[in-house]
Amino acid sequence: MATTPLARTDGLTVHPATHARFDDVRTMVGPKNPTSNVCWCLSHRIPAKENTSLAGQERADHVEALTRKRTKPGVLAYDGDEVVGWAAVAPRADLPFARSTKIPHVDDQAAWSVWCIRVRPGHRGRGISHVLLEGAVAYAVQQGAPVIEGYPVDNQGQKVDLTMAYVGTRAVFEKAGFELASTTEATSAGFPRVIMRRG
C-alpha cells in the first residue's frame, strides 16, 4: 500500500480510501456493533430512503463497494501505520446535497463536497482535521474538481457537541484556505451551517 500521500505533516499522512484500506475505513466509520444500522458515513452520501433501508452488513457492503470504484469515497489519515482520521469527499452532484433545499448551490461549477471529518478518540487536538481537509482537497483536485465545498457550523468559537462535530467548523475550513461562499438554512448542533469554498 505504499503510495504517495495526498498530504503530510508532523508524521501524519493522508491517503485515498482504496479497497486495500477498507479495514481502516471500517475502523473509522463502522459501528462498534456490526449489526447496527448507523453511521458508515452514509446519511449524506445516499438518499434518506436508501440509507434507512440498508441494515447491518448491507451498510458495510455498500461502503466496501464504494472503495472498489475509480473515485474513492473519502480519505484516511495515518499516524505512522495507525489510522487516525477520515474525511468523506465526493462530487456534490452524486450526493443528496445536490437536491438540498437548505444548502443552496452557489453557482453552476461542478463542486465537490467534504461533509464529514472524523478523528479517532485519543488523537484529537493534534491538527489531524487540518491535514485531513488538505488531503481531501488534494484528492478532489486530482480527480478534476474545479472547486471544493464544505458545510460546517459557524459556531464562533463555542463548543460543538462531539456527536455533531463531524461537519467541521468554519474556523477549521478557514485555516485550510476556504472562504465563506454563502449562508444556508441548515443547522447542526444548534449552530447555523455555512458554505465554505476553495478552488
Rank of each mutant, 00 (worst) to 15 (best):
T52F: 01
H44T: 15
A77E: 02
A140D: 00
D107E: 03
G144P: 00
R170S: 14
V167C: 14
V106R: 03
K159M: 14
A93K: 13
H19C: 15
P31N: 09
G74F: 02
D94L: 15
G190V: 10
A176H: 03
V106W: 02
T18R: 05
G122I: 03
F191S: 08
V160K: 08
L133C: 08
A111H: 05
L180M: 12
A176Y: 02
V137P: 00
D94C: 11
R170T: 11
A60F: 05
Q156R: 13
L54W: 03
R198T: 15
I46W: 01
G168W: 07
C41Q: 11
E134T: 05
I128F: 06
I46Q: 04
S182G: 05
W112P: 00
V141W: 01
E185C: 07
V38D: 05
A2D: 08
V141H: 03
E149T: 05
F97A: 15
Y78T: 02
R45S: 15
R70I: 04
R126I: 03
L132I: 05
Y78G: 07
D23M: 04
V172R: 08
V106Q: 02
F173Q: 11
A189I: 04
T4Q: 11
Q57V: 12
F97E: 09
N33D: 15
D107C: 05
V167S: 12
T71D: 14
V160M: 09
P104F: 11
D23F: 07
A48E: 13
E64W: 11
Q57S: 14
E134H: 07
G11A: 08
T52P: 00
D61Q: 13
R198K: 15
P152R: 10
G56I: 07
V141Y: 03
R198W: 08
I117S: 13
K69H: 12
A87M: 03
V38S: 06
A17V: 01
Q142L: 09
T67M: 11
N155W: 10
A181N: 06
E50N: 06
A189F: 08
K175E: 13
